[in-house]
Amino acid sequence: MIKPGAKNLITDVDGIRVGNAHHEGVISGVTAIIPDEQAVAAVDVRGGGPGTRETEVLKPDCLVDRVDGIVLSGGSVFGLDAASGAVNVLATQGRGFKIHDMTVPIVPSAILFDLINGGDKNWGDTPPYHELGRQAVLSVSHDFELGNVGAGFGATAGRIKGGLGSASAVSEDGLQVGALIAVNPVGSVTVPGTDSFWAWELEQGQEFGGVGAPKLEGDVVMDLPAEGRIGGNTTIGVVATNMALTKSQAQRVAIMAQDGYARAIRPVHTPFDGDTIFVLSTEKKQLEEPTPLSLAKIGSIAADCVARAVARAVYHADSIGGIPAYRSK
């Protein structure tokens, strides 16, 4: 039997904490996902307009197989500096690889585009993201809010407010999987003309409102925002599991987890999105039967968690900067 964890957050996975920080005037923010110890990591990038840092090092044929954290940020290219702030904090905490007299944290990062959401982006030569990255790491906890939080603070989801979402699934035999997603797609997370989420059939309890199946009248049409808002998008996130995975196994889970975007967002992986998913394995539990079938199970659960997290992000978001929220439609 598989069901949501106690918090229904990615922190239901043993060894994972999350910190968030935002700037209200800029209408943007940063999320840091920090394992208690270095975690095996992988990444899969599917969107046509990605913005990332240190993703190449996560390829299975590269040297590094464990990371000290993952940073998700708004701010487009400016937001890549959030990882530098996170790295500096982790280095002072003694986290990272020891090289001679230096400590070097490994913190891959991905950014989303939230530069045209109505916030004040006139920051001169000092964008706020380095400091927001520091604050996010310093605030890590097992508890955090959803919606207008962290990297999802200034996000939009098609025509409505996006946000930060999370969901988890645990099994009776100890498997833990969780997802944390900053939702900012060009596509829609709801069935056009209805209040139903595309991910409605995966909902656990009433975690995103309990609206259920769409009541359709006529044909379903593609719902895209006005042309002026297309081009500034991207959905980014992290999947975590307590199961011990190799780097290549984590890569396969990341590939499968991308299907969660397709279950919750339409259209997805467009030329305007930089859709990216990282995977973290905290290695707290060994697979009892380390077979391809076991890996497929983890990847399938991960995809469902991603889809649920997408819907929860939008459901919990509030209107901001003139962008209406789902619950205010």
Results as ranks from 00 to 15, higher is better:
Gly5Asp: 05
Lys7Arg: 15
Lys7Ser: 14
Lys7Thr: 10
Thr11Pro: 10
Thr11Asp: 09
Asp12Asn: 10
Asp14His: 05
His22Cys: 14
Glu24Cys: 09
Glu24Pro: 14
Val30Ser: 04
Ile33Asn: 00
Pro35Asn: 08
Ala41Trp: 01
Val43Tyr: 02
Gly48Cys: 02
Gly49Met: 06
Thr55Asp: 01
Glu56Arg: 01
Glu56Ala: 05
Val57Ser: 05
Lys59Asp: 02
Asp61Asn: 05
Leu63Asn: 01
Val64Tyr: 04
Val64Leu: 10
Gly69Glu: 03
Ile70Gly: 01
Gly79Tyr: 12
Leu80Trp: 07
Ser84Arg: 13
Ala86Ile: 11
Ala86Lys: 12
Asn88Tyr: 13
Asn88Pro: 06
Gly96Ser: 04
Ala110Ile: 13
Ile111Gly: 00
Asp114Val: 08
Gly119Met: 15
Pro127Lys: 09
Pro127Met: 14
Gly133Ser: 06
Gln135Gly: 02
Leu138Ala: 15
Leu138Asp: 14
Ser139Val: 06
Val140Cys: 03
Val140Lys: 12
Phe144Ser: 11
Gly147Lys: 01
Asn148Glu: 10
Val149Trp: 02
Gly154Ser: 12
Thr156Gly: 06
Gly163Tyr: 03
Gly165Tyr: 05
Ser166Gly: 08
Ala167Asn: 11
Ala169Val: 08
Val170Cys: 13
Gly174His: 09
Leu175Tyr: 01
Val177Arg: 02
Gly178Asn: 02
Asn184Val: 11
Asn184Cys: 13
Ser188His: 06
Val189Glu: 09
Asp195Lys: 15
Ala199Cys: 10
Trp200Met: 02
Glu201Pro: 15
Gly209Trp: 14
Ala213Glu: 14
Gly218Cys: 11
Val220Ile: 15
Asp223Arg: 03
Asp223Phe: 04
Pro225Ala: 11
Ala226Arg: 14
Glu227Gly: 07
Ile236Trp: 06
Ile236Arg: 09
Val239Ala: 07
Asn242Ser: 10
Asn242Pro: 05
Met243Glu: 03
Lys247Met: 03
Lys247Arg: 07
Ile255Val: 02
Met256Trp: 06
Asp259Tyr: 11
Arg266Asp: 14
Pro267Asp: 07
Pro271Lys: 07
Asp273Tyr: 03
Asp275Cys: 11
Thr276Leu: 02
Phe278Thr: 01
Ser281Gln: 09
Thr282Tyr: 07
Gln286Ser: 15
Glu288His: 05
Glu289Ile: 04
Pro290Asn: 06
Pro290Met: 00
Thr291Val: 09
Ser294Leu: 00
Lys297Ile: 08
Gly299Phe: 12
Arg308Glu: 00
Val310Arg: 05
Ala311Glu: 06
Val314His: 14
Tyr315Asn: 12
Ala325Gly: 10
